[in-house]
Design a protein around this nucleic acid. Sequence first.
DNA 1: GTCTATATCATGATAGAC
DNA 2: GTCTATCATGATATAGAC
Lengths: 234, 234
Amino acid sequence: MNGSRSAYTRKRILDAALRLFAVKGNKTSLREITAEARVNVSAVNYHFGSKEGLIQAIYQHRVRALNQTLLKSLDNLEEKAGSGTPVEAKDLIEAYFRPLLQHALTDTLAVPGNDPALREPHVLLRTLIMNGHSEVLQRFRLAFSRALPDMPDDELVWRLLFMLGAASCAVAGREGLLNALNPMHSEPFCPESLFQKLLTFLVGGFLAPLPGMQNAALAVKVASPQQYPGIAGP
Amino acid sequence: MNGSRSAYTRKRILDAALRLFAVKGNKTSLREITAEARVNVSAVNYHFGSKEGLIQAIYQHRVRALNQTLLKSLDNLEEKAGSGTPVEAKDLIEAYFRPLLQHALTDTLAVPGNDPALREPHVLLRTLIMNGHSEVLQRFRLAFSRALPDMPDDELVWRLLFMLGAASCAVAGREGLLNALNPMHSEPFCPESLFQKLLTFLVGGFLAPLPGMQNAALAVKVASPQQYPGIAGP
DNA sequence: GTCTATATCATGATAGAC
DNA sequence: GTCTATCATGATATAGAC
């Protein structure tokens, strides 16, 4: 059987890509990779379909590990809470975003410390979505829904999306975005400290009163709706 | 002098690119654009440096208009508040993110309705940063700093970044991301409704107590950190 | 089934001629 | 300033070796 040889070639490509991506990012050309792996260019296409497929294959194992971690963590929370009572929202947020941030910040590549690709905003999200992460999100979404039964589904989903966006910027911020806001790079980078910052932000945002609630302290004044749609003024 | 002819070629390219990007998104090839403009392929590189340069040139005018809108809006707020008192944080958030979202959602291209490129997450942020938006961010950052003098600089900058990430997902969410979370998306899209959702989330997150503080002074500035009626959990 | 060699195509970028 | 090569790249297809 040739299966072992197939797996060997596949692994050669993956290893070479892993090595080069870690240094040069995902902009590394297929030809560089295949040269490093001493393999024909077409082999990449045969095994992975495309360059994007190769990239996804690299991340697949770790993303799936993350998925499992998250599901297990959610299982534990729900078991501890019992079947009757829902898990609290802020516990859900922590259970989801702590592993996510840890995954994105420290567990990015076998080569310690560097994965230029993931620093590019939203590459993280795309990679997640393409590796079975949607099911995990659905599980958490249901848990959130149980935790906050009065929050409309529509509102809940958008808030989850906002949280993902904030988390994505938390990962990517260290590189380019943070400089635009804060040219004087002050603090040394500390993952745990960043996570605490993110967590408080997320909890505050997710548990904010619903829009339009007049008696809510944080309710936002409804602005003149005639500004939408269209372009108003200069 | 040949300047007028140069400007003419430049405009031909811009017009053609604008037309094609509006339909096919930024993935439109340079050759399609130059064919439409009846211009040599290299002319793009000469006038704009690269395809990315061309894209930025297209957005430049409108981003700069947005910058001006934001600065003027901030000026008005500060003038109304007087020189002694700072503008409230939630007013700052609204003053910044409403025009931003409007810009990204409705004012995306001269051709009505569509700018597939901006739906791709964080293309918005990149485009902004590359067109003098950093100075605007600095102005707002100072205003936020005055509004919340007790918030450490480091914390403030990260929260601004989180807000930008959430806003970016608000823009991009309609396409791919929302489907991953909510396969049955029944609600019709309403920009104003989305903005209200985003705004409440941002205010809740930005004004959240500092990490490590249970009853923070920051929360007192707004209200007691209560949640809207019906939401469970302490 | 696995992989190589090779060719073809569209694309973005660049150098140099005019 | 403009245009003509020319190049490197990603993707794809075919033929054939093993």
